[in-house]
Simulated scan of single mutants.
Amino acid sequence: MFDLTGKVAVVTGASSGLGAQMAEGLAEAGADVAILARRIDRLESLKEKITAMGRKCEAYACDVSSEEDICKAISSVEKDFGTIDIMVNNAGVVISGASHEYSSENWDKVMAVNSRAVFLASREAVKVMLKHNYGKIINIASVAGLAGGPQSASYNASKASVINLTRGLATEYAKNNITVNAIAPGMFATEMTEGIMGTVDDSAAGRTPMGRIGRSGELNGALIYLASDASSYTTGQTIAVDGGWISLL
Rank of each mutant, 00 (worst) to 15 (best):
K7N: 11
K7Y: 04
K7W: 03
V8R: 00
A9M: 09
T12K: 03
S15T: 06
G17F: 06
Q21Y: 04
M22I: 12
E28N: 09
G30H: 06
G30I: 08
A31L: 09
D32V: 04
V33A: 06
I35R: 00
R39K: 13
R42F: 02
L43R: 04
L43T: 12
E44H: 10
S45Y: 04
L46A: 08
K49N: 15
T51N: 12
A52W: 05
M53N: 06
G54T: 02
C57M: 09
Y60V: 12
D63W: 05
S65L: 03
D69V: 03
I70A: 10
V77S: 03
E78F: 01
T83I: 07
I84L: 02
M87R: 04
V88F: 10
V93M: 12
V93L: 13
V94N: 11
S96T: 13
G97D: 08
K109V: 11
V110I: 14
A117F: 01
F119P: 06
A121C: 15
A121S: 15
E124A: 13
E124F: 01
V126D: 00
V128E: 00
L130G: 11
K131H: 02
G135H: 03
A141I: 05
G145K: 06
S152V: 01
K159F: 10
T171F: 03
N176F: 05
N176Y: 13
N177V: 07
N177Y: 08
N181H: 01
N181M: 03
A182Y: 05
A182W: 03
I183P: 10
I183Q: 02
M187R: 01
A189E: 14
T193I: 00
T193S: 15
M197H: 11
G198V: 08
T199Q: 14
R215D: 13
L219F: 05
L219H: 07
A227G: 10
A227V: 11
A230H: 05
A230R: 06
S232M: 08
T238P: 06
I239E: 06
V241R: 08
W245K: 11
I246Q: 07
